[in-house]
Design a protein around this nucleic acid. Structure first.
Lengths: 158, 158
DNA sequence: GTCCATTATGTTGATATCAACCCTCCTTGT
DNA sequence: ACAAGGAGGGTTGATATCAACATAATGGAC
């Protein structure tokens, strides 16, 4: 069955306890589920909310710039646009100054839906932030320093 | 174009800077890509590595227990098993004591591949851990305390 | 002006993720 | 026994994610 080439169980325990990829992805799945649930009444996912929020700006951004902002593959963003376009929430247009580029913009319906989603985001975010603060027993005095340090750590990995 | 019901740009900037769901998912995508790259010579993804590592234990676990460990939907785990089963790395069997349950186990080929993947994980993990430590300027004295606090934060969200 | 390397994006195929729905098996109350 | 409720999993359909390949437009070198 098992032989000396197998990975010892102790190694497995170490990987489970320390692997940053596993820890971050676990948290990502859990958070996504929680925000998905909060936004479900609006038929929006957490990813769609983040994407639409990225488009709420004066000048419509390009595919490449937003995919860099969200740290996702360019082609993933292309795919994620499809359902939003189909629902008339987002519009994609060729950039006349550089015809290779596409510019994405929220439609009026998209802006309205985003505004309706914001209070739900705010409520959920406050709940989550509390979990981060409570978990940080090494910073007993700080209300926000722990959450800010956590975000700094996350940004260093992005 | 825009009206008073629209979300102000300042709100968008606040969400971008603080949204924990966005920050964690960004980091998750980036880390997954990085570990995927490290494991590509073995034709393993980071998720497959984590799953196989979860199965490297004396007693074969059930679907439900592993999906809880990985904080993923039960049905996602079922789907993730398919390519590993097809490659003969994992075996799924009905639990004779409770015929509703399935028990997953690595095959000899699976154990060998996992052992071959471990050094690549270790190297990549060390690189990533360094990024976490370096980013934590509020803990100048600590080499690992920052990374440990980071993991505690992550676990609180899982 | 023409060629060519680069840039920005789309397409396809495979895996990942989850909700909704369905089935089977176990357990408990009677 | 046995019927009802619950627990453990699978399937389907939609979206998410990325690598590999392909296309079109730009910008320089000459």
């Amino acid at each position: 069955m098992s032989n000396s080439d197998d990975l010892p169980f102790e190694i497995t325990l170490k990987v489970r306890d320390t692997c940053l990829c596993l820890h971050v992805r676990r948290a990502a799945r859990t958070l996504a589920r929680r925000f998905d649930e909060a936004l479900r009444p609006l038929d929006l996912t957490s990813g769609q909310f983040s994407l639409m929020m990225s488009l709420n700006r004066p000048e419509p951004p390009t595919i490449g710039s937003v995919s860099a902002l969200l740290a996702m593959d360019r082609t993933t963003l292309t795919a994620n646009l499809k359902p939003l376009e189909r629902r008339g929430l987002v519009k994609v247009m060729v950039d006349e100054a550089d015809k290779r580029s596409r510019r994405m913009a929220l439609t009026p319906a998209g802006r309205a839906l985003l505004a309706a989603a914001y209070p739900r985001w705010e409520r959920t975010q406050a709940e989550i932030e509390r979990l981060v603060i409570q978990s940080d027993s090494t910073r007993p005095d700080s209300t926000r320093a722990g959450a800010d340090a956590f975000r700094i750590n996350l940004r260093a990995l992005s």
